[in-house]
């Protein structure tokens, strides 16, 4: 089975928020809510400053506390690419999944169900890229099958150093940041 993931080049990301706007537009994310966002991390003392800009979203983890804690099975792992999704008709809005995510990637949609990034699975299943990847002006975002050694994302991970967010949380995230 394919395992979809993203590889994001932090050396190229400028934090322009095109990915955020693309997501909001494509997925009709309600005003005041974000499925993806920009994080700027600065560290050090002038003139020795390190800075990383990264675009973040649900990590579509391989070990998913949000799926385990769901009492109705609304949070589930999709057959295609191991993408973590929410079935709106099963979700009771108990918020356990929101609490269980160490990345705080979920929120409650004004209509009552838990919401988050879907890797634009509706586009991916048609052979398109996720909206955020499609619009990135610096081409810093790459999407593909991490289980395919010949995919673009696998090759990038073979050739560059990278980190994931909160590896210590044990969730095995599938979004990788090139450094």
């Amino acid at each position: 089975m394919a395992r979809f993931g993203m590889v994001i080049d932090t050396k190229k990301c400028v934090g322009c928020q095109d990915c955020v706007i693309a997501c909001k537009t494509e997925n009709k994310v309600p005003e005041g809510h974000d499925r993806d966002w920009i994080v700027t991390e600065s560290h050090g003392k002038f003139p020795d400053i390190l800075m990383e800009i990264r675009t973040e979203r649900c990590n579509h983890c391989s070990n998913t506390p949000c799926v385990s804690c769901c009492p109705t099975g609304a949070s589930h792992i999709h057959d295609v690419g191991g993408v973590v999704l929410v079935n709106h008709d099963l979700c009771i809005g108990c918020k356990a999944c929101v609490e269980s995510c160490p990345y705080d990637a979920r929120f409650i949609h004004p209509d009552g169900y838990a919401d988050k990034c879907t890797f634009c699975i509706h586009r991916v299943e048609k052979g398109l890229k996720p909206a955020c990847v499609e619009v990135c002006p610096t081409y810093c975002m790459h999407f593909g099958d991490l289980d395919d050694p010949n995919s673009e994302v696998s090759k990038l991970l073979q050739s560059r150093k990278y980190h994931v967010n909160l590896p210590e949380a044990g969730t095995q995230p599938n979004i990788f940041y090139l450094i």
Partner: peptide
């Protein structure tokens, strides 16, 4: 200095 700034502002999640 170690500063993390995020543009995310989801209700009841952030800050």
């Amino acid at each position: 200095m170690h500063e993390i700034f995020t543009t995310r502002n989801n209700p009841y999640v952030d800050p």
